[in-house]
Design a protein around this nucleic acid. Sequence first.
DNA 1: AATGAAATTACCGCCCT
DNA 2: AGGGCGGTAATTTCATT
Lengths: 171, 171
Amino acid sequence: MPDTPRLLDAIDRRILGELCQKADLSFAELGERVGLSAPATHERVKRLRADGRIKGTTAQLDGPAIGKPLLAFVHVDTSGWGKSPELMNLTELPELEEMHSVTGDTCMLLKVRLQSSQALEGFLSRLYKVTGVRATRSYVALSTYLERGVQAGISEELLETPDPSIGFVEP
Amino acid sequence: MPDTPRLLDAIDRRILGELCQKADLSFAELGERVGLSAPATHERVKRLRADGRIKGTTAQLDGPAIGKPLLAFVHVDTSGWGKSPELMNLTELPELEEMHSVTGDTCMLLKVRLQSSQALEGFLSRLYKVTGVRATRSYVALSTYLERGVQAGISEELLETPDPSIGFVEP
DNA sequence: AATGAAATTACCGCCCT
DNA sequence: AGGGCGGTAATTTCATT
């Protein structure tokens, strides 16, 4: 299975664009939107899955509506680096949604969605029991203005050479 | 429309647990897993949608496989507060996946997925053009160990009173 | 265009107020 | 008696060849 089996054409992108917003379309409906017959569309989607472009389809749950009104991002400073088995154990907690190692002043970035601030305290307490965890910094979400999965589109705009006369620095 | 129309029972939670992992099960299959007939399961799912527990279903795209290998979290310092129309314009960029206002030393937290580091530069450049944006700090993901949507489960573990003898502080 | 599977509706019965 | 909920059967829509 090659890494980039085939190139995506315009129709593939439109299919991905539709499916990442609403995955429960019928193939007939999806085909109509992209200008293909149902079976042809089905074939495309099967290919996109086989090529690993589409990893699967999931239901989007509403955090507050299922009892998890609190969203937080936790930066973690560790003494060691990367994937420790102990750290990976946290993965079993359904409250943990993301775990990335990142560049910058911290090593690990976690995204957690919790029942309450008490649960956040419980989570941090759990985190500090992991050997190698030095310190944490938490950012609690006050409002979420946008939250969605990977989008198919790509902006030309961002690839333009930035105007050097404007200039910016990260401190 | 009441905020919490009905309470979730054990079967609802199991349905949510299945669907947030794999939303393209047949109702027959899903029903088998939770111990209900297909129509009864369908009824439950319809209710969970109507009550806003399930917001929709989406395809999970693979970032690298669709040409976006770079994931970054950008903390933004703004002079004003909250939702400015100018900031909300960024929402149109498919590279922007999340935007939250957060507690802590920065005001806004963004999640972006991009084609390249050049595109990240382009994005930051675009960001600095928004009035009120003072400074940014970017965390680029080196490895993603876990990335998933809202999970249905809730850990009892985190609600236990933390052992006060351990103790921890956020600096 | 045809076949088989699945979603969806209709309708009936049970249980617990 | 009635409302909520689940089961079976019938129908329509959709996936798949």
